[in-house]
């Protein structure tokens, strides 16, 4: 919608109120808020990989990817790590409290291009959140996609979230779930080490595979290198990037990444779009 916040059809900078109708503590410091916009009876349509700006009264807005199912028409789930002024405050809110919401924004994952292909999803840390809707999208249309591989890495074992989801996805036909922690613990039955250590266990046909990466840049650099070496074409690798975002409208300049605005050109990019500077430290 031109010049408008899609949630309320009003000024594009201005959020709309949204009620917290559910809250899940995912791990120490990570929580999910389930939001219902106050103004609209139905949540706006969004695509996997898109994000909303979530506003905390008196403090400000942060970009948070939408975790919920794109098919759901009334509720929007956002998984948030308690790490800054806004997220610390959001962590203290409870069902019944109100936040502000603008969105959805950004270019999400290339679901149409992924159709008919094997899909590899490689995530690190909270990078798993922006891919949950991809996984649900594929599972809801299981016959339309090839083999699905889900690879998630965390620094410490106790930081793994969505454990129930991973267990459930393990049972989906033609789906592999591989988990890794740099530091394991007594209740960590999976790989101890890097996500890229697990790539040899993946089953895919490189010429008809699409890879979706989201997580710390160092992890993505290593994953891109491995996937290219395995024979994936550059244009079959997609990365979700993260930069400071304040407007989400391509105006404020904070998410500048090379010649791209992450908020409007991305956050999901095909690797060739970023190749000239991807991995350059401090860029």
């Amino acid at each position: 919608m031109r010049g408008r916040n899609p949630l309320n059809g009003r000024d594009l900078h201005c959020p709309e109120g949204a009620r917290i109708v559910g809250r899940i503590d995912e791990s120490d410091g990570i929580f999910t808020l389930r939001l219902r916009p106050l103004a609209s009876s139905a949540a706006p349509r969004f695509g996997p990989g898109q994000f909303n700006m979530v506003y905390l009264f008196g403090v400000g807005e942060i970009p948070i990817s939408i975790v919920s199912d794109p098919e759901s028409d009334v509720l929007l789930d956002h998984t948030i790590r308690r790490v800054g002024r806004v997220s610390e405050g959001l962590a203290r809110l409870q069902p019944g409290d109100c936040v502000g919401l603008r969105g959805p924004y950004g270019r999400g994952w290339p679901m149409e291009r992924a159709r008919g292909r094997d899909v590899i999803i490689v995530t690190g840390g909270l990078g798993c959140a922006p891919t949950v809707s991809v996984i649900n999208y594929i599972i809801n249309r299981r016959g339309e996609f090839g083999r699905l591989s889900i690879v998630q890495g965390v620094k410490r074992a106790q930081e793994l979230i969505y454990r129930d989801r991973y267990e459930a996805w393990r049972g989906v036909p033609d789906t592999r779930v591989l988990l890794a922690a740099d530091e394991g613990n007594g209740s960590w039955p999976w790989h101890v080490g890097l996500v890229t250590d697990l790539f040899d266990e993946l089953a895919y046909e490189p010429s008809r595979t699409l890879a979706m990466l989201c997580g710390p840049e160092g992890m993505m650099v290593a994953a891109v290198r491995r996937l290219l070496r395995a024979g994936l074409p550059e244009e079959a690798i997609f990365l979700s990037m993260e930069r400071n975002m304040q407007c989400a409208l391509g105006l404020c300049g904070h998410c500048q990444y090379g010649a791209k605005f992450v908020c409007t050109d991305g956050p999901v990019f095909a690797y060739p779009e970023l190749k000239a500077w991807f991995g350059t430290r401090g860029y």
């Binding site: 790490v83 800054g84 993260e242 930069r243 500048q256 430290r281 401090g282």
Partner: peptide, 28 residues
């Protein structure tokens, strides 16, 4: 604060900030 994300300073030094400005202004 320009390039600060969740506890990480993407451009922590002046070298990367000047490079950001010039490569954007004259490049991007």
């Amino acid at each position: 604060g320009h390039a600060f994300i969740h506890g990480l300073q993407v451009r922590p030094d002046i070298r990367s900030r000047y490079r950001q400005w010039l490569t954007h202004k004259l490049g991007g």
